[in-house]
Amino acid sequence: MSLVTLADVLQPALKNGYAVAGLVTLGWEDMRAFVAAAEAENCPVILQAGPSCRAHTPLPVLGKMFRHLAEAASVPVVAHLDHGYTSDECREAIDSGFTSVMFDGSRKPLAENIAETRAIVEMAHSAGVSCEGEIGFVGYSGGENSAGTDPKEAAQFAVETGVDAMAISVGNVHLQQQDGAGLDEERIHAIQAITTVPLVIHGGSGVPMAQRTALARGSHICKFNIGTELRMAFGEALRDAVTRDPDRFDRVQILSETHDPVVAAARRVLSAFKGA
C-alpha cells in the first residue's frame, strides 16, 4: 500500500532538493491518469480534491477513490483536501480517509487564521493526518487580487500553528492559463530564511517551467499545485474524442481517449520537479 501523508513526501523533498506535485483532480479519469504518470516517472504524487471537485463528488466517495488508487500504486500517493474552508469540512475529509488536509484561512485576519489553523492542525495530527495552511492570499486570474505574504508573519504562522506545509503568496495566481511573470524569488528567500517548514505554491500552472525546476531544486518550495494546465489538456483531448466521431455516444469509450494525453501532460509536470 502506497498511501502516505503530506509530511511523508515533503520532508524528503525538503532534505534532498526536489518538489512534489499536488495535482488537482476533478474525476476518476484524471486522478487515474495522474497516478499512472507518477508511476511512469517513478515519483510521489499528491491527489488533490478542491472545492469544484467536492461540489461534483462527495468527500466520502473521493476518499475511497483516492485510497483505491493509492493502495494499488507503486509510488507514494497522498490523498489531500485542497482549500478546506471549515473545521467540519476538514473533519469530514479525515473521516473519509484523506491523509492530508489544507485549511484555508488566508482571507481572515492573522490572529484568526493562526488560531483556526492551529485547531485544524491539532485535529489532523491526532488522527495521524498532515495539515497545510496558507498565509498571505493567493488571488485568482480575473478575480480576487493577491495579498503577498509578509515573511515575519509567515514565520509566526509556521511556529504558532505547527503546520506541515505552508502555502505562500509570492506572485502566484490561481487559474492562469498562460505563464505569468514568474515568482518573487526575493520574497521566497526572505521567507525561507526565517522558517523551516516546507513551502507550497498554489496556482503553479502560471509559473514558467524553468522557474519551477529551479525553485524545486534551490529553495524550500516542496509542493507546487498544478490544476489549470492539466484541465486544459483533458479538455482538449475530450473535444478531440467527441468531434472525431459525432455519432458516438458511449461516454466510457469517449472518456477513455483522454487517458494517454493527460498522462503525457502530467508526466511533463512531474518531471520538472525531480531533483538534479
Rank of each mutant, 00 (worst) to 15 (best):
G180A: 08
T195M: 04
G206S: 08
A214V: 00
C222N: 06
L215Q: 09
F234K: 07
Q177H: 11
A155R: 06
G203W: 12
G136M: 05
V121W: 12
G171P: 09
A124R: 05
L183W: 06
V121G: 13
A147K: 12
F103A: 12
S205K: 14
Y140H: 10
F157Q: 04
L238N: 04
V197P: 01
T149G: 02
R231P: 07
E160R: 11
E132N: 02
A214K: 10
A154R: 01
T161C: 07
G148N: 03
A214Y: 09
C222H: 02
V197I: 08
G182W: 08
A119M: 13
T228Y: 12
E186T: 14
F224Y: 09
G171H: 10
I201G: 06
A124D: 13
I120F: 09
M166L: 15
F224T: 06
E185M: 06
V170T: 06
F98L: 15
G139F: 11
Q178T: 15
S96C: 13
F103S: 13
K108M: 15
G143C: 13
A165C: 14
L175A: 15
G206W: 11
R239H: 06
I201W: 11
G139H: 05
D184C: 09
A233Y: 10
V200K: 00
N225I: 03
S205W: 08
V138M: 04
A154W: 04
I188S: 08
A147M: 05
R187D: 02
A93D: 04
T213A: 13
F103C: 13
I226K: 07
T149H: 03
S126M: 09
D164S: 11
L215R: 04
I194N: 03
I191C: 00
